[in-house]
Design a protein around this nucleic acid. Sequence first.
RNA 1: UGGGGUGUCGCCAAGUCGGUAAGGCACAAGGUUUUGAUCCUUGCAUGCGCAGGUUCGAGUCCUGCCACCCCAGCCA
Length: 559
Amino acid sequence: MSSTEEKYPGNFIRNIIAEDVSNGKNEGQVVTRFPPEPNGYLHIGHAKAICLSFGMAEEFSGATNLRFDDTNPLKESAEFKEAIKKDIAWLGFQWKEEKNASDYFEQLYQFAERLIQENKAYVDSLSADELREHRGTLTKPGKDSPYRSRTPEENLDLFRRMRSGEFADGEHILRLKIDMASPNINMRDPAIYRIRHVIHHQTGDEWCIYPMYDYTHCLSDSLEGITHSLCDLSFEDHRPLYDWVLDQLAMNCRPQQIEFSRLNLQYTVMSKRKLKQLVEDNLVDGWDDPRLPTIAGLRRRGYTSHSIRDFCRRIGVTKSDNNVELALLQSCIREDLEDSAPRVMGVLNPIKVVIENYPEGQEEELTVANHPKIEELGSRKLIFTREAYIDREDFREEANRKYKRLVLGGEVRLRYGYVIKANEVTKDEQGEIVEIRCTYDPDTLGKNPEGRKVRGVIHWVSASKGLAAEIHVYDPLFTVDFPDADERDYHELMNPESLTIHQGFVERGLGEATLEQRFQFEREGYFCLDSKHSTADAPVFNRIVGLRDTWAKIEKAGS
RNA sequence: UGGGGUGUCGCCAAGUCGGUAAGGCACAAGGUUUUGAUCCUUGCAUGCGCAGGUUCGAGUCCUGCCACCCCAGCCA
């Protein structure tokens, strides 16, 4: 095991697979699959599953198929398929084959006829309500449908007529004949085909009966030669059914279904239903809203695929319920960007500083490093001028010793530039400071002043040489750590301040920024252009994540 | 009152044959620093849901409890 792998926890699935491989099971082959339903966008929970399934195959020199679980045409679309493919590719994974469950519709149908002929499936004509009544409850066994005793001949005739479109939606279903008294509800003669006279995005109007998940998934896995079928814990109860179907059909490829717990991340929702609701109710800016935990949202926010993969490996894979803190995800992106993002300066809440003893019209070119430690990141030129913007947070008319930024009568260094001293402020009618009038010490460029210590360094942008930019700062979409678990309506839980828009200024050089680039705005955080709203003459930056902020903690503790 | 799961530090999570509790995040305290960032150092479970038992020795085995999660779609 390499040193990079030691950083991550092992997991029980890898152990199982490793043992299978060493035992020569499946001739030592590992074939996995990722089976999304094309009814929405992928989110970070899916990323966990993707990293696992693709990761295991990669680790054991196997392969992973991408298979769209498109058995419910009512909810699915080809647009979602494309979005899903883009996200997986962006995460950095390559699937061996792209499949659709619908590719197997004909084979699935033939298998169903066989089950009927062998008296292992029957056409039921109960209504949905009656079906529910017959199913029993968690504690009470179900009872047989009166149609359960139909002969194979009768069933075959009915099933063929279902296929040919003779019946309306809901008139009949095909059920497996297992055991209505089973303590496992999934085994109480589950429905495997229903009638739906709808157009399917892949098969068009070829079918009006559609197979259901439990029946489709295991057979698709088997047909593709999947060795390890990894899914979330909610399918654990379905495993007996998965195995039952493959047993009855005597399939020679017998994939092993292994379940793991899905990811829960603080301050966000992970259910596709809720994400879809947020998008459709226009409560967010599309599926790729930077506040969403969707892959597209994280991408637009500026998260790197590397950081997401790192996160997925750090959280591990187990069967226990988990509540992962947002801090872990943030730590992953900070770690990735710390060494790769060039440093620049940007002011989010501008307030003007005028250096009165700096000659009007004078400009000085400063050559500054793009990274404090990594020389390969090069350098750039900044222009120092008489007027600059600093952040309102970096100035106080008065403050205690702990505050080491600009205070009236005190000194601070403008990062990479001179030490300035604040002499007076001018305010508007509302008492709001509009300008800070300063003087500078000409002998402090690149060196400390004689005989006194300047404790603070703040960032700035030249007023005349900077670039106006809109800067979007994000906070969690929800105010509670686990909105999914909250009984209140999600509208009540939404954070009204999840997006703050700043009209700020950035270094002129950022005018050439590309969508792929990420920067550290010094002392603020990591930023990138917003792929949706940024334009050449009106740049919009997204804050990916703030820097660790010890000062905020000190302040909070002091108040 | 049915079935299936899970319970190791605030969060995530390692923990082969029982041998005397990894690591990451977070947090705290120092040091370096023209980013209150980074980096470095140090600290952070006599304890593994609880109670018994077996054993020289148990997070790991046995018994009994308790808590939490999932399942009653012609969704996946």
